[in-house]
Design a protein around this nucleic acid. Structure first.
Lengths: 156, 156
DNA sequence: CCGATTTTCATGCGTTTGCATGTATCGACG
DNA sequence: CGTCGATACATGCAAACGCATGAAAATCGG
């Protein structure tokens, strides 16, 4: 195989990522413009959503940080705001004195559901017409595979 | 078809988007941690990159704004900073007194290339092992289709 | 068991962001 | 040609962010 066999492989990966990134930007722009995000910012909703999907209801702050594209300090203050608004409650972790557990309040859960419904409608009106069901399933499969390969944990 | 045929279609779209979004977050986290983004922030690099791909060299500020996930005012100030650092130059648009054209300086072009090379290596080391070449091509096709369907222009 | 290192979260501080608004130009229409 | 709404960019200001650091608890090594 020629030397540029490797080169073209590198380029393919870069182009694939750029395409994925641009698609994400395009969709995100439309979602942010939607009425669903008047009450809470996108990152705040992301936290509420992640908490709503948590089986036990309680989630550690550092686990939450793996899901969200935010620094640790920014997440700390974001959660502080959510708590002030009465949407989540904090609790010291029972098995680890350093840790903090989070849970949605009833009000927080209600707000998440309300916004979530609207959000899901916006999403399906964007993604639904764009791709066939089979294509959506394939896109889901590929992005899941990519995410799991990359791993949730960054080096630091 | 049953009523929940539509419901499941909505859910599929939402799950597809969530998967795409999480993959983007996971990859972006790793990229931001890389050494490539010590000198310029990710949004700043995105601007330099977009300018480097522009055939004429000059690009209108409002067109740039379609590519980047930033408000108009934030982009205005981001460009102001890049100009102060000597990476881009501004020029009044010849055919439109309101418009502003942007171009990379030689220093800006050199920096973009330098960071771009490193960035591309980081990307390929993340995406390359995750998906086969055929899968990458398919992912690229699907995300391009999604982006074009959604359209670059948000409502406002 | 004790000191050193690591992990987890909070906080000070300068920077960046978005919203609302201001200014200038463009385009349409009578 | 003058007026009126729309568009493009800049700016004041408060909110949100990341980096560096601090404090408290856990973990490791002798």
């Amino acid at each position: 195989m020629a030397a540029d066999g490797n080169e073209s492989h590198i380029r393919l990966a870069a182009e694939t990522w750029e395409s994925l990134f641009r698609a994400q930007v395009a969709v995100m722009r439309r979602l942010q413009a939607g009425a669903a995000f008047r009450k809470v910012a996108i990152n705040e909703y992301d936290v509420l959503f992640t908490l709503s999907r948590c089986p036990s209801g309680w989630l550690r702050l550092n686990e939450l940080n793996d899901h969200v594209l935010l620094s640790q300090s920014s997440l700390s203050r974001l959660v502080e705001r959510l708590e002030k608004r009465g949407l989540v409650v904090r609790m010291a972790a029972p098995d680890d004195g350093r840790g903090v557990l989070l849970k949605l309040t009833e009000e927080g859960a209600a707000l998440q559901k309300e916004i979530g419904r609207e959000h899901v409608r916006d999403i399906s009106s964007l993604v639904g017409p764009a791709l066939t069901a089979a294509e959506q399933r394939e896109l889901q499969r590929l992005t899941e595979k990519l995410r799991h390969s990359v791993g949730a944990r960054p080096a630091k």
